[in-house]
Amino acid sequence: MTDRQVLFSALRVAVLDGDDAAAGRLATQALAEGVPALEAIEQGLVPGIRQAGQRWEEGEYFLPELVTAAQAMKAAMMVLQPALDRDDPSSSLGRVVIGTVEGDIHDIGKTLVGTLLSASGFTVSDEGASVPVARFVARAQEFGADLVCASALLTTTMPKQRELAAALKGSGLRAKLMVGGAPVNKGWADAIGADGYADNALAAVAVARELVGRGATD
């Protein structure tokens, strides 16, 4: 293996191990050694997160491993993103505003989706939990969002997703809406006029890619 391959392999393993410190350090090392950011991402981080996803699908990995893998990837992306933007200003897959709807303080699922979207190449603004409809709309405008993701974990807070769908339509913004959360299903998403729905974090990334017209490249 060449030195570069060793470095990519180490990046991949850092993501798989969910080791954010190592991932950040290796990303810095890659730039210092003159490795193009895109190459480090495509040959180190992406194989790592893809393998973590595979292990998840096969039942070998569980949520803590998936989340820490995504966090490690995010840590490396923080280092690589500025260089990536320099190399190619249009490298982001799209801009996403994500949050849990007002009255709902659950944010584990939402945070996981945000982290995975960010790790997959989206530019993500995570607004946290209990986000009012008006704030979703305002942030979508400020941020130039291509996609708004709203999670609801309670049947009592689900109607906020319907309000948000109406408000986004009324605002004239181009941002599409994806909804999720334990009580939410495809039928609800269709009924309230949301553009997309996913029942787990990995599926959310695939749906997000489709909604921004950057469907699966692999």
Binding site: G18, L63, E65, V67, T68, Q71, D107, I108, T111, L112
Partner: peptide, 23 residues
């Protein structure tokens, strides 16, 4: 942190603490 799912402590301990059920 507001949550612990992504913390190392969770990743390192959940398999010891939790019975992981079969399909």
């Amino acid at each position: 942190l507001g949550g612990f799912l992504g913390h190392r402590h969770t990743r390192e301990n959940f398999r010891k603490e939790l019975f992981i059920p079969g399909k």
